[in-house]
Amino acid sequence: MSLRITHLSKLYGKNIALSDVSIEIGDGEFLCILGPSGCGKTTLLRLAGGFETPSSGSILLNDTLYSSPEQCLPVERRNLGMVFQSFALWPNMTVRQHAEFPLLRKKYARMDAAEKNRLIDQALESVGLSTLSDRYPDELSGGQKQRVALARAIITRPKILLMDEPLSALDAELKISMRKEIQDIHRMTGATILYVTHDQNEALAMADRMMIMKNGRVEQIGTPEEIYLHPRTAFTAAFVGKYNLLRGIWDHDRFYEESSNACFHDRTTCSELKEQNLFPVRPDQFRIVKQGDGIEGKITNRQYCGREIHYSVDCSGRPVTVYAPVREDYDLNDTVVLIKKEETD
């Protein structure tokens, strides 16, 4: 079983919101769609949900046509659950009524009341809301609201769960703890999850596979490790791994940085970036030393973060970010040299 998206495009008037997106999503896979705002990730989710009709291309679940420009299976017949950034709770219903709502449809008319109650109790239990079942949305905190939305989305055990930045409206602390709950729900239901977010940490932490998008196009698809360690485009490198992109000339595995005479060895950089004369280096891959064979620069900013210190280093007019351990303490305007840490593997 798989959800197959083929050459999907969406135009709003003359604006291209989504352009030629193709991906096959496996059964029970957790796919994170990651990108900055306006990159088309929400459009993709809405197309998958059937809230919008594609301009070209198609979406198929197994062999059933879900969406094409000519034909669009209505949302309510797609067997999916959805969670929104704004929670989308109905202000006039209690927590329990929210969970019950999907079971009131005709499809479940023959299910007996006891069974329904059992399902509701189970769903509320799984999101930890059993004690709050008679509360109204305005009596709940942000995290509780999103749990209600989750319970409502999973009660009918849908094949596909669509999540549109579900954690973006929550505060930092809660975000981290809710990640775990969403992972639990994924394990418990075994549903295919399409999860849209602009937070790369969230995506790296939860996804089975990630899809990086920019300006309506797919930049790269891969596992979190692939995306983080081996970015294939400059955008992916900068957006997900916060890579510094050094310019220079490649000669096989050697890279000569253009503004200094520094030379780096690297065997992992992909050919696409090499062709663009770019060398991606993560902030934690640099070491700052007083003297040595590397890129010279001047420290222009310093942020103490407890575990490490984040430096901005000006290298011939180009800013480079370096995360250094606290024992490597430098002051503003210090002249330093950046060298690359030796890979341990």
């Binding site: 949302v75 309510e76 959805m82 929104f84 709770l89 999907p102 449809r105 669509l162």
Partner: peptide, 16 residues
């Protein structure tokens, strides 16, 4: 009325 309120109902199996 936020559109998401409608979408949530549609996803829950309600027709238009």
């Amino acid at each position: 009325i936020p559109r998401e309120l409608e979408w949530a109902a549609r996803a829950a199996g309600c027709g238009r």
